[in-house]
Design a protein around this nucleic acid. Sequence first.
DNA 1: CTGAACTTTCAGAAAGTATTGAAATCTTGA
DNA 2: TCAAGATTTCAATACTTTCTGAAAGTTCAG
Lengths: 159, 159
Amino acid sequence: MSVSRLEVRERHFVEELGALFSEAGGAPMMGRVLGRLLIAAEPVQTAAELADYLDASAGSISTTLRQLTQARVVRKVRIPGQRAAGYRLAETAWTDVFMMKAHMNTIFREAAAKGLELLEASDRDTSRLKYFHDFYAFVERRMPQLVDEWLASQAQEES
Amino acid sequence: MSVSRLEVRERHFVEELGALFSEAGGAPMMGRVLGRLLIAAEPVQTAAELADYLDASAGSISTTLRQLTQARVVRKVRIPGQRAAGYRLAETAWTDVFMMKAHMNTIFREAAAKGLELLEASDRDTSRLKYFHDFYAFVERRMPQLVDEWLASQAQEES
DNA sequence: CTGAACTTTCAGAAAGTATTGAAATCTTGA
DNA sequence: TCAAGATTTCAATACTTTCTGAAAGTTCAG
């Protein structure tokens, strides 16, 4: 059976999402799994189906699905009368991926705060560190607001 | 000469920033260099001074400074009567680091758009992909606004 | 309950990335 | 100009992360 033109381009899309996740500091397999869940005709996929489509081992699919499930980006679905569990994108997938990355802002702000504490005891110039701290504190405050704004705009659209 | 308590904690701060940059998907050395430039008593440091303090090779300092300079996070300063060039944090360092990361949102949105184009030709469900696309399009729009808002609030503070 | 199907775990292999070290090139004060 | 010092480049190496494969553990239809 030949592989259709569409399918080739689909695989390319999935592979690209893997590369992008890798660039963004994640594991390629995470991007690939999310890519497949985004475009598959059937939104619910089993681990075996994903492993087969992505030509990956059951082990790495298992690890990836656990990470994504723990991060609330993917949901595990049990289907009665079927042994294998299904997995689908969570409704909140993208806001959660976004907030996961945004969490780094908090960690940077905290590191800056510790640095400030350190220098305040000395007579050293703290202005550079203070600017760094204040910017990340600002971003940290705004990120959840941004997500709320998006959710509100989506709720509006529905009506 | 013994190393003071403050200096030990300073080195720890620098090392932590390296670890955070690594977690965030960058090179550890970038974080270390920025950390040192944040807390050094003298804001302008030469490549040799950084290499010495960070116990790193001249090569990796050179590579890192080039990357940071190209990204406009660090500025090269030439001091007359001194052979070695100096490096200091750019005024726009943190907004530029932030926008560099934010640029990934654009790349994700573009990937989603390509995927949509692909599925639109078929009779496949595009709602998951459309949601993905729209969220990142929203974030892409808001990020520069966020930085502007910050800059405006800083300008206000000065008066 | 049982056993076949599914899933997880984890040691080690493979792949990918950061850093070094040394040679080549460039810069600038004298 | 030139020589000493500074910087860049890049192949080799060390380190880190990702993925596989196989064995152990779990689940559920019959």
